[in-house]
Design a protein around this nucleic acid. Structure first.
Length: 133
DNA sequence: GTTCTCACA
DNA sequence: TGTGAGTA
């Protein structure tokens, strides 16, 4: 499955396409880049070029945001995703019982629970959640 | 026509 | 986040 992974990392989509695919505004996409949630490549004309992985990433960001998570929380979520991903590939390289979706869902639940139980006093300023619902 | 950066009545 | 300005 290396060819497939390679194609998913090919940055060939301009921001206009990313907008249609993710239903996000150019403003939002650029803002998320500033927050280092995504790292689109740049072409010769300094224009952002997105890969399918970037698109998935943007969709995840939109998903997390919908669940009330903020930028800091999402950054943390991606770090954990990377950490757990490494754990899975090294401990069960041939056991694919856990799909990426499972990891994301489990992780989201964990984050929502943690942030939800924290009292306003012990909550890290703008980490997991936006204003307590 | 599209995208980029910067700035704000 | 939106939006307009001035470019590339």
């Amino acid at each position: 499955m290396k060819e497939k992974e390679l194609r998913r990392t090919l940055a060939v989509l301009p921001i206009g396409t990313a907008m249609k695919l993710t239903d996000l505004s150019a403003r939002q996409i650029r803002y998320y880049e500033d927050q280092e949630l995504i790292r689109p490549k740049r072409n010769e004309g300094n224009q952002r070029m997105f890969s399918l992985n970037d698109i998935d990433r943007l969709l995840e960001i939109k998903d997390y945001l919908a669940d009330g998570m903020n930028i800091a929380g999402i950054k943390y979520a991606f770090e954990e995703q990377k950490r757990k991903s490494k754990l899975v590939t090294t401990t069960q390289s041939d056991n694919h019982e856990l799909t990426d979706d499972d990891v994301r869902r489990i992780l989201r639940e964990e984050l929502l629970q943690t942030g939800g139980l924290e009292g306003p006093d012990h909550q890290i300023p703008g980490f997991f959640h936006k204003k307590p619902l």
